[in-house]
Nucleic acid binder design. Sequence first.
DNA 1: TAGATTGTTAATCGATTAACAATC
DNA 2: TAGATTGTTAATCGATTAACAATC
Lengths: 220, 220
Amino acid sequence: MASRVSLDRSLPNQRIPKAVVRRLSLYARALQRLEGGASEKVSSEDLANMLGYKAAQVRKDLAYFGQFGTPGFGYQVASLRAEIKRILGADREFLVAVVGVGNLGSALLSYGGFLKQGYRIVCGFDIDPEQTHAREGAVRVHHVRDLEKKIKELRIDIVILAVPPDAVQAIADRCVAASILGILNFVPTRITVPKNVHLHQVDLALEMESLGFYIRLQSE
Amino acid sequence: MASRVSLDRSLPNQRIPKAVVRRLSLYARALQRLEGGASEKVSSEDLANMLGYKAAQVRKDLAYFGQFGTPGFGYQVASLRAEIKRILGADREFLVAVVGVGNLGSALLSYGGFLKQGYRIVCGFDIDPEQTHAREGAVRVHHVRDLEKKIKELRIDIVILAVPPDAVQAIADRCVAASILGILNFVPTRITVPKNVHLHQVDLALEMESLGFYIRLQSE
DNA sequence: TAGATTGTTAATCGATTAACAATC
DNA sequence: TAGATTGTTAATCGATTAACAATC
C-alpha cells in the first residue's frame, strides 16, 4: 500500500489539512515570482523565508503529495510550480456563477482577482436580471428562478453567493439540490451544507471585528 | 496576579488565539438570533450545537475573558451578548477608509456588510478621484497623494486596500508610516507590515484555489 | 570526497475535548 | 435535596518544528 503513494502522487491517501492546501497556493505564487529570476533552483529554506514559514514546514507540506526535490540541491523552480499547479487542479477548469448581482455581486462578476487560470465566471443570477443586465456586457444575468435549470445546463461547478442575508440559506439549499460542487459564501450569515459540498465563508464583518479586537488589545 | 484576571475581565493577560476571537464574533451573532426568542437563557451545549462546536469549547473560549455563566443554569442570552460585544470592542467606533476605488473598492465602499456597528467608512482614496467621484454620493473620494495627510486629519484607524497588485506594498508602507492601526488587504498579493499593525488578508484567489482543490479531491 | 539539502521521524507546541468537582 | 450546567484541569488530538540519516 505504501508503494502506491510514490507511484501516484496526485492521489494522496491521507487527509490533507486545509492549512496545507492554503500554503500550497502561496508556494505556487512565490515560485511564480522566482520564475524568470536569477536562479532556477530554490531550497525549502528560501521558500520558507519568502513567506515567513519554517523550512521544515515547506518540506512537510510538499511531502503530502510526493517527492519533488533533490537532496543537496533543492527544488527546480519551474517544475515545482508546475507540480503544485497540477496538485491544485490546474488540469481542469471550474465554471462559476455569481448569485445576487447587487453592489458586491456585480463587483465580483467583473473582478479579475480569481478569474486567473482555472476559474471561469459563466453567468450571474438575480431576482431582477433586467436591472443588472446592461451593466455587465460580457456575462449574462439570468433570473434566479432558473437557478437549478441553468446550473445543470451550463454545468456550473461553483456558485458565489452575494444575495441578501435572509435569502442565503434557501439559495444555498437550491444550489445543493442542483448538485453544485462548491460554494463561496460572501454573505455575513453562516450557512450549512452537506459535507460533500465544499463551502468557504468569506466573512468581511468577521474580519473587521477581529481586526478591531486586536487593535483594541494592542492599544491597551 | 491570578486575582487580576477575575477583577478586570476586559484585559486578558494571556495571549488570545485568533481562532477564539473569530468564534467570539460567531457566538455574538448566534446570540442575536436567540434574542427575542422563546428563552432568555442558553447553555454552552445549545450554543455549541448552533455553530457545530463542542460545549467545552464554548466554555473555554468564554473563560479567556471572564466568568459569564451560572452553574446549573447557563448564560443569560442578552447579557452574554452584551459582554461579547464589549470584549470585541463595541465601546469604540473605528474609522475606515478604502484605498483604490475601482470595481471592488467602490463595491466595498457601498457594501453594508461590515458597516454594522463599530465601523464607519469615512472616505475613499484613488489616483483619479474625479472619475470615481460621482458614483459615490455619500462618501468623499480623495486623491491618493493626500493619503498620509487625510489619515491623520480624519483619524482613520483602518484602511481597506483594493489597489492594483503592484501598488499594494507601497500603499501599505505609506499607511503604516501614517500610523494606521489595521489593514484589511483585498489584493491577491501578500504584503508585510510591522507587527504592531494588524493585518488581515482576504484572498479570494486563494479561497477559489482551495475550493477547487477540495472539489477535485472529492470527485476522485 | 565534502557540503548542501532533502524527506522523514521524533519532539514540541498549541488547540480541542473529555471529565469532573464546584455550585446554583 | 436532586438535577443541571458551569469553570477548569487533565487527556487527547493535530499541527509545527527540530533533528538527522539518506543522498545528490
